[in-house]
């Protein structure tokens, strides 16, 4: 995946998405929620990048910002060579067919008053000039691709189960032959036995149509299954980015370590052997992140430098990036000293 021959389809540089907080009688701007605060990564053509983190870490905001569902605060986003970070919304319209989204809640993201054919056909109405029969053919083709029975084309979303609704959402996202799809927690609302069906479908479609995914999820075991590379977010920043196997076997950032150790193991024999790192406390507010490293308030390996200086996001092994002073060669000596003196 990460070999140099592949070219990045999506390049995100220093993406920031801040939401203003207004307060007082005059609704003055009192501060901002730094939901995404300087995120950079590439997504290579044909790969799946997993984006994981806990609720409120900014992963969904990042996904939406990358598709410019928001007007971003700062940064650059290039998709398929075209810069879309600063484009006005009207100009983005022509780009939309190439980048699509699958949402978390298939109940809320489908219009209850539209039939399945209407929902899947809507992007075709907006972006193509297909005749009525061509459109219907395309809708049937899409329903076949996602495993929905053609006979259901005139039914309404409430007549379907959660898994089937998610298939409708996926068919809609595929309608315009996109290259890049952001999947925002596509399986979180589904039952365990249905999750595997949808994940397998996403994998099949990727192979068939050469899709590139940004797969946003809090389910670390599912991400391990589907992603080629994984980025871990904490409080608006990417703290670690690595090829899948490296991230799961030799995590570098203390947060990734703790996060992975917290996942329960569905096997009592293995579960008994898991060494769990229990993090103290809660995630700080993104409106008022701590000084220095964002994770310094909960980090079990915190050092003095972490409370004053923000660690740089750097490559510590081939393709393995992390933002942590522990892995910063230039600082590790002083860090070692601090840790030693603290131990005394």
């Amino acid at each position: 995946m990460a070999d140099g021959a592949l070219k990045p389809l999506v390049e995100v540089r220093n993406l920031k998405m801040h939401f203003p907080i207004f307060s007082g009688i005059l609704r003055r701007r009192a501060g901002e929620v730094k939901a995404v605060d300087g995120v950079s990564f590439d997504i290579f053509e044909g790969e799946t990048l997993g984006l994981v983190g806990e609720s409120g870490c900014g992963k969904s905001t990042a996904g939406r910002a990358i598709l410019r569902l928001y007007d971003i605060t700062e940064g650059s986003i290039r998709i398929d060579g075209a810069e879309i970070g600063s484009q006005p919304q009207d100009d983005l319209r022509a780009m939309r067919p190439r980048m699509q989204m699958v949402f978390q809640d298939p109940q809320a993201s489908l219009n209850p008053r539209m039939s399945v054919a209407g929902i899947i056909g809507e992007p075709l109405d907006e972006h193509t000039k297909l005749s009525k029969s061509e459109k219907l053919d395309r809708i049937y083709e899409l329903m076949d691709a996602v495993g929905l029975n053609r006979d259901f084309a005139n039914r309404y979303p409430h007549e379907f189960s959660g898994g089937q609704r998610q298939r409708i959402g996926i068919a809609r996202a595929l309608a315009l032959n996109p290259k890049f799809i952001v999947c925002d927690e596509p399986i979180a609302a589904l039952d365990v036995s249905i999750q595997a069906q949808v994940v397998n479908l996403l994998e099949d479609l990727q192979e068939k149509f050469g899709l590139t995914y940004l797969f946003i999820s809090h389910d670390l075991s599912m991400v391990r299954h589907i992603a080629d590379r994984v980025a871990v977010m904490y409080l608006g920043k990417v703290v670690e980015l690595a090829p899948r196997d490296a991230l799961y076997t030799v995590p570098k950032h203390p947060y990734t370590e703790a996060l992975l150790s917290a996942v329960p193991e569905p096997d009592p024999r293995l579960e008994a052997k898991v060494e769990r790192i229990i993090l103290k406390g809660d995630v700080p507010s993104p409106a008022n992140p701590p000084k220095g490293c964002n994770f310094c308030t909960r980090c079990p390996k915190v050092m003095e430098i972490c409370r004053s200086e923000e660690p740089e996001f750097r490559e510590v092994a081939p393709g393995h990036f992390t933002a942590c002073h522990l892995h910063d060669q230039t600082k590790s000596q002083t860090a070692g000293k601090t840790a030693a003196s603290e131990a005394q």
Binding site: V192, A196, S221, M222, R224, Y248, L260, E265, L270, V274
Partner: peptide, 10 residues
Amino acid sequence: LLQTVPSVRG
């Protein structure tokens, strides 16, 4: 059910 759930280890 036991076969369908992936794990972060193993």
